[in-house]
Simulated scan of single mutants.
Amino acid sequence: MTHLQHLFLRRATGAAALALAVTLGGSLPGQAAAETLKLGNEGTYPPFSMVDAKGELTGFEVDLARAMCARMKVECEFTVMDFKALIPSMLQGKFDVLVSQVSPTPERIAKLEFSMPVVYNPQAFVMRKGVVTTFSKEALAGKGIRLAMQRGGAGIPYINKHFDGVFKHVYYDNPDQMRLDMLAGRLEGVFGAKINWTRELMDTPQGKDYELVGGDHWIGDPAIPPEKRGSSWVMRKGETALLGRVDTALNALIDDCTFTELRKKYLNVAILVREEACAAKTN
Results as ranks from 00 to 15, higher is better:
Thr2Pro: 02
Leu7His: 15
Leu9Lys: 09
Arg10Cys: 13
Arg11Leu: 15
Ala12Asp: 08
Ala12Leu: 14
Thr13Arg: 14
Ala15Phe: 15
Leu18Glu: 14
Ala21Thr: 14
Ser27Ala: 15
Gln31Thr: 14
Ala34Arg: 14
Glu35Thr: 13
Thr36Pro: 11
Leu37Gly: 07
Leu39Ile: 04
Phe48Trp: 00
Ser49Tyr: 06
Lys54His: 11
Gly59Ile: 04
Phe60Arg: 05
Asp63Arg: 02
Leu64Tyr: 13
Lys73Ser: 15
Glu75Lys: 11
Glu75Ala: 11
Phe78Glu: 04
Ala85Asp: 11
Ala85Gln: 11
Leu86Thr: 10
Met90Cys: 05
Leu91Glu: 11
Asp96Arg: 07
Val97Gln: 10
Val99Arg: 07
Gln101Tyr: 03
Arg108Trp: 11
Ile109Glu: 10
Leu112Tyr: 03
Val118Phe: 06
Val119His: 03
Tyr120Gly: 14
Pro122Tyr: 03
Ala124Tyr: 03
Phe125Pro: 02
Arg128Val: 01
Gly130Phe: 07
Val131Asn: 09
Val132Lys: 01
Val132Arg: 09
Thr133Asp: 12
Gly142Tyr: 15
Leu147Ala: 00
Leu147His: 05
Leu147Met: 08
Leu147Glu: 01
Leu147Gln: 00
Gln150His: 07
Arg151Phe: 08
Ile159Tyr: 06
Gly165Lys: 06
Phe167Asp: 00
Phe167Gly: 07
Asp173Gly: 10
Asn174Leu: 02
Pro175Asn: 04
Asp176Glu: 13
Met178Leu: 03
Leu183Lys: 12
Gly185His: 06
Leu187Arg: 00
Ile195Lys: 12
Ile195Ala: 09
Asn196Thr: 03
Trp197Gln: 03
Glu200Pro: 01
Glu200Val: 00
Leu201Glu: 01
Gly207Leu: 00
Lys208Asp: 09
Val213Gly: 08
Trp218Thr: 02
Asp221Cys: 06
Ile224Ser: 11
Pro226Asn: 14
Ser231Pro: 10
Ser232Tyr: 01
Val234Tyr: 05
Lys237Ala: 12
Thr240Asp: 11
Ala241Asn: 12
Leu243Tyr: 05
Val246His: 10
Thr248Pro: 09
Asp256Arg: 14
Thr258Leu: 05
Arg263His: 13
Arg263Ser: 09
Lys265Asp: 07
Leu272Gly: 00
Arg274Leu: 11
Thr282Asp: 01
Thr282Val: 14
